[in-house]
Each structure stands twice: as structure tokens, then as C-alpha cells.
Amino acid sequence: MTTTIGHNVDLPERAYRIRRHALRMGEVQGQGYIAQALDIADVLATAYFHAMEYRPEDPHWEGRDRFLLSNGHYAIALYAALIEAGIIPEDELETYGGDGSRLPMSGMAAYTPGMEMSGGSLGLGLSIGVGMALGLKRKGSKNRVYTLFSDGELDEGSVWEAIMSAAHHKLDNLIGIIDVNNQQADGPSTEMLGFEPLVPKLEAFGWFTQRIDGNDIEAVRAAFDAAKQHPDPQPRMIVCDTRMGCGVPFLEAREKSHFIRVEEHEWQLALDALDAGRTA
């Protein structure tokens, strides 16, 4: 069996639960890449509960779609999605970042079920995605490769080489997702190395490109559908503008949120804010 895929799935509820899992894991360490987990939850909910084919009980099933996390520091977000998808037991979130845990702070494919690549070095995910997509095509597979990477990774030359390669090989089974939250370790991404106008650049490189509000779950769903249904033999890119800390207003308001420490008393406040937004 595959996961339930379709419009009957309550995607906002899945996104809420992914955010909640991430906050609970963050509380274990008291700090981390929490803001990124909150900003990308809507994309992950749509990927795992609307777009992708996989078997929770068999993460290595050959007929699965592949989801590559290039920005390995977002691992807490992907773990939350894998927990919600039933690939990782929920009680393991209490082990996050601990010795011997299957949930290290940066994603490691050798440790974690459902983790397709290790993402310690930024800028490599799309290159790996090109190789996987090309391999699937040569095997005659109809499955897709989804690759999530961050706007800061656009600083890396390997990303642009992969963008050229994917178009050259007409990899219509490759869907890239860029999280544009305008935040990286040294400051705002657009100030570190300007990458705009992004959509015309990607289109000029031969990609079918959409730009959306990555925290509007209906827009995310429509973009995934359009990417899958696009008829031309070219790779597809979804540029997602997101808000760091989305769903927890006092975290959204933090000026620097690439790696944050949340005070002990603030974790419950964050969960309460998330719950309030769910019922609003």
C-alpha cells in the first residue's frame, strides 16, 4: 500500500502536527533550527500527504518517490514529517540530538529511516537529485525525486551546475523546492549574495518555475500538482517564500532566527501559540 494521497487529506492539520513535533524535539535540546522547521512545515505536509508515493512500513521500497533534504540542518523538520507519516515512531522524538539517537541534529542517511541523503555540506542536494532522477529514468521508473534546498545554497556553484545539468538531460521527474526565507548564518540571504530575480533566471536555465507563498498550503498544493502535471520534458522548480518561525508569532518576530535558543519557559508558550493559531 502507499500513503493516502489526495484532496481528502487534512493538510493544515498535518502541517500543525509537524510543527508541534518539531517544537517538542527542539525542547529536548533547548535550541536549534526551530524557525526553519516552522517555516517549511506546510511544504513537508503537502509533499508527504498529497504529492509523494511511499510506504511507511518500507522506507526502502523501490517504487517510492525520493525526498532529498539538501539543507541538512533542517533535519528536525524532516524528522517531524517522518514521524507524522509513520516512518519513525513518535516516542523517538524524545531522543532528538542525543547519543545513539536515530535523529541527529544534522540529517544522516545511515541513521534515519526515510532519510535519503546526508546533508552536512550545503549545495549538494540538487546535484544528488540530478543523479537519482537520471538513474530512475534509465531504469524506466516513473517515480520522482523531490529536492528541498535553501536560498543560501544559491551561493554555491554546484547548485547552478546541477540546474544546467537537469535541463540538459530533460529531467521531468525532478522537482526542486527552494525555501526562500531570506535568512542564513551570516545574515539576510539577499544581502550575502544577491540571487534575484530568481524566477526569470531559472526559466532561462530551462526549468518550469513557479513562485508561491510557501505558507499558503492551498498554493503549495496547487504548485505541486502543476509541477507533476506539466507536460513539457523539463525539470520543475517551486520557489517558496516562507516566514521563519511561522505559526509562533514571538518566534516570527525575532530578527535573527537562523539558529535560536528558546528559554525553558518559552517552549510551552510556543506550543500554546501554535495551538491558538490552529483553533483561530
Rank of each mutant, 00 (worst) to 15 (best):
D10Y: 09
V28N: 02
S141E: 13
V248P: 11
Q229L: 14
H73T: 03
M132A: 14
R254Y: 07
Y33Q: 11
G247P: 10
K139D: 15
A35Q: 00
M237L: 15
T2I: 12
G63C: 04
G114S: 11
H169D: 03
E263A: 13
V130K: 02
K228H: 14
G119N: 06
D272K: 13
T46F: 04
A222M: 11
L124G: 11
L202Q: 01
L136C: 00
R55H: 13
G107T: 01
E62N: 03
R261P: 00
M164L: 14
H230F: 15
V9M: 14
S121D: 03
V220F: 07
T279S: 14
E90Q: 13
G152D: 08
Q229T: 14
A109E: 09
D225W: 01
F259V: 12
I83S: 03
L193H: 09
A45F: 04
Y54H: 11
M244P: 09
L148K: 06
H258V: 03
N173Y: 14
P113L: 02
I178A: 04
L93P: 00
E263K: 14
I177A: 00
I18K: 08
I88E: 01
F205H: 10
Y96A: 00
W267M: 04
L174E: 00
A81H: 02
S127C: 08
T147K: 01
P89I: 01
E94I: 03
G245M: 07
P12V: 11
Y146F: 15
G30P: 10
N181V: 12
G187L: 13
P59G: 12
A226G: 01
R211Q: 15
E196M: 09
K256F: 14
A167T: 10
N182I: 05
L269S: 11
A276Q: 14
I178V: 15
L103F: 02
G140I: 02
A133Q: 05
E203Q: 15
A223D: 05
G26R: 05
G120S: 08
G247S: 08
E264S: 14
A85E: 01
D241K: 12
L202A: 06
E218F: 09
S118F: 04
R24G: 02
T190E: 07
A35S: 15
I40H: 02
G247T: 07
T112M: 04
G86H: 09
E218N: 13
I34D: 10
I163R: 09
E57W: 05
H258K: 00
P231Y: 05
M164N: 13
V159D: 08
S101K: 01
V28T: 08
M164Y: 09
A80Y: 02
H168D: 00
L103N: 00
S158E: 15
Q36C: 11
D172A: 14
A133S: 13
I163K: 06
G187I: 13
T46K: 06
Y74P: 03
I76Q: 08
I5W: 08
L68F: 06
G157R: 12
A47N: 03
V220I: 13
G63H: 11
L251I: 15
A110W: 05
I217Y: 07
C240V: 01
G86M: 08
L154T: 10
V262W: 04
A223N: 08
N182L: 08
D91M: 01
S70W: 02
P104F: 09
A226W: 00
I76N: 02
G135Q: 12
L23Y: 03
T3G: 13
N182V: 08
R24P: 01
H258D: 00
I163H: 07
N173E: 11
R19P: 10
